[in-house]
């Protein structure tokens, strides 16, 4: 028993060194760092702009309908005279909220489902993965719409519905990784010393999945942004007067003469999605230098 704590300590510096070298590789990747900076800036602006601009996002202003971008309204105004700049960022806030929350649920469900299937193996694994296969056969968007129609069109429920069926890829990836980790010496050592299965999964398997999980998380957030935006095109998800990028874009697509209504939200969304793509690429390269 005396040796136990000492032995555990030997591993600690090595892990630290791994993450430190990952970070130094990442910080040398200019494209990824710029993208990360853009994501942080946009997130901060989505929080700050609606608070400090002093302009209401939902108050109708009949005197200022459909103004093109000018010094007062930087992004112009919409058909109800509302300031598009503020609406873009409050929409961004909702979009980010849904995307991050859904991505979090996806990670949680995907990691546990995949780790359990991969670790327990045998019949349990077969059944669990068969369920995933079946769910894969259902076109994602239609199933989402079905769930939202069933459980009512509220924002919280729509993101639960999105998350409930988006964890499939995650669970497959995690399962594959778990299978390879399972046969590593340290896990076998833990099994031999009588550590419980649950503890092995949470203490040994999941921490070693982190690399894959982080990269996949960075890819899940933009997917969630797109999906919630697509749902807005079907009139589901966020509803007026609250707004989201998807709703703003679909609004802009119906008022093409007012180009600013489409161009600004679409531009913001493109910048965000590309930033996430580049950042995830950089992360993957940093975690797996080959």
């Amino acid at each position: 028993m005396i040796f136990k704590t000492k032995n555990l300590d030997i591993d600690a510096p090595a892990t630290k060194g791994f993450w430190r070298s990952v970070f130094s590789r990442l910080s040398r990747n200019k494209l990824a760092m710029t993208s990360g900076l853009i994501i942080v800036t946009l997130t901060l602006m989505c929080i700050v702009v609606p608070i400090f601009s002093g302009v209401s996002y939902d108050k109708t202003n009949w005197g200022e309908i459909m103004q093109s971008p000018n010094m007062v309204h930087w992004f112009g105004t919409d058909s109800l005279g509302r300031d598009l700049f503020v609406r873009s960022f409050i929409g961004g806030r909702i979009t980010f909220e849904i995307a991050f929350a859904a991505a979090f649920v996806v990670l949680l469900v995907g990691i546990f489902y995949g780790a359990i299937a991969g670790y327990v193996g045998g019949k349990v694994d077969t059944v669990m993965m068969r369920i995933v296969d079946i769910l894969y056969g259902i076109p994602f968007l239609f199933f989402c719409i079905l769930l939202i129609t069933l459980f009512g069109n509220s924002m919280a429920l729509s993101f639960v519905a999105i998350a409930a069926i988006s964890w499939l890829d995650m669970s497959r990836i995690v399962r594959g990784q778990t299978l390879s980790i399972k046969h590593k010496e340290y896990v076998e050592a833990a099994m031999v010393s009588g550590v419980s299965n649950f503890k092995i999964i949470t203490r040994h398997v999941i921490p070693n999945l982190l690399g894959v999980v982080i990269v996949y998380a960075a890819l899940t957030v933009p997917n969630m942004i797109v999906l919630s935006a697509v749902l807005s095109f079907f009139g589901l998800g966020v509803t007026e007067p609250m707004t989201s990028w998807g709703l703003l874009i679909s609004d802009g697509a119906q008022n093409m003469q007012a180009w600013w209504l489409l161009l600004f939200p679409a531009g913001l969304m493109i910048i965000t999605l590309l930033s996430f793509a580049f950042f995830a690429n950089g992360l993957r390269d940093a975690l797996d230098p080959r």
Binding site: M256, A266, M269, L273, F276
Partner: peptide, 28 residues
């Protein structure tokens, strides 16, 4: 990289804006 990141729901309306509204080449 660009088209896997940016979905049809963004590129679609932008195409309409360019081809149908600005240049009036095609029906919207």
């Amino acid at each position: 990289i660009f088209f896997t990141a940016v979905p049809t729901m963004v590129t679609g309306p932008l195409c309409v804006l360019v081809f149908a509204v600005t240049f009036r080449l095609l029906p919207a």
